[in-house]
Design a protein around this nucleic acid. Sequence first.
DNA 1: TATTATACGGAGGGTCCCTCCGTTTAGCAA
DNA 2: TTGCTAAACGGAGGGACCCTCCGTATAATA
Lengths: 180, 180
Amino acid sequence: MRADARRNNERLVAAAREVFAREGGGASMDAIARQAGVGVGTLYRHFPTRMDVVQAVYCTDVDTLVHTAEEAVADLEPWPAVVAFLEAFVRYAQGKRTFLNELREAFDKNPELRLDMLERVEGSMQLVIGRAQGAGVVRTDVSGQDVMQLVGPMCTNATLSEEQSMRLLNMILDGLRKPS
Amino acid sequence: MRADARRNNERLVAAAREVFAREGGGASMDAIARQAGVGVGTLYRHFPTRMDVVQAVYCTDVDTLVHTAEEAVADLEPWPAVVAFLEAFVRYAQGKRTFLNELREAFDKNPELRLDMLERVEGSMQLVIGRAQGAGVVRTDVSGQDVMQLVGPMCTNATLSEEQSMRLLNMILDGLRKPS
DNA sequence: TATTATACGGAGGGTCCCTCCGTTTAGCAA
DNA sequence: TTGCTAAACGGAGGGACCCTCCGTATAATA
């Protein structure tokens, strides 16, 4: 792969994320190419279909989330790692609201993508939660998957402010912490 | 309202339901007008926006469901009425799958529509279930709303065959029936 | 430096939603 | 029945969007 191609690939994904965030999931391919400073032809060579763009953005979001989990486990004590990761997870899940329809469509046409990504996210959640459970700071009668099923749907609710979700997250964190 | 206008209005809604069922939620306005044997101009006079068509189809679906409940209560014994209505409800809810994205969009832009329709459907469910409870043939520790929250989401699951849903419905009916 | 495989740009084809306006017609009064 | 008019109809076309195609430019290599 030529150097300019790789450069443009990264630029396109970044541009797409920005445009989707600004204009919603219905943003046009022209707008994405323009934001990347690139012709539509280039955009289409890198991503043959609009859905491929959605997928690419989503995958890098998951990458970031997974990376956050690994970093939290490496750099932080067990409990602060849980707090940091759950905050990142809420941001991640809320970001999905802007192009939820697009994502649903992508999943419909490519069901294994959903499973792959779900698995990766669950893995990260379990990594952070399991470690904290091992250290005795998180109750052991819930799993990472349980927490995901609690927090995920909460975030996709369209009428939930970021402030509200952070309040609720604090409540959940209190419930998650092992009573001493 | 002129006679031809009313005629066309009904024809358009019927055509839209048929085209949506055949081609999915993304069906074009042209296709709907063609199916109704009418120019697009006429379609747009009756429904200024694509979303208005979706709304109209959805509202008549709810009308039908409500009517089914009233008829069941008038014509059938309490328990057969429950069976008939729940079967109609499953058909109704599964019909929504074909244009679920469109419906979600309509709800986003017009939140009170969702509440109105939810209320009407809940009312019908409660009418049928409540009567059967009064007659002592349905357990009294569940409400119509409970049943809806159980059956509704089941039906929106894309990977659920009609046969499967009917099997599950039978199971639910057995659970609903008051043990004698 | 010359060559060539690769990437780029953007005009344009096809489709879709919606508008506009000239034509037709239903409903009514004489 | 006939004439009138407000209302409804039809469909060409404007604008936006997804995607394709191909001539041009450029990175990598010898």
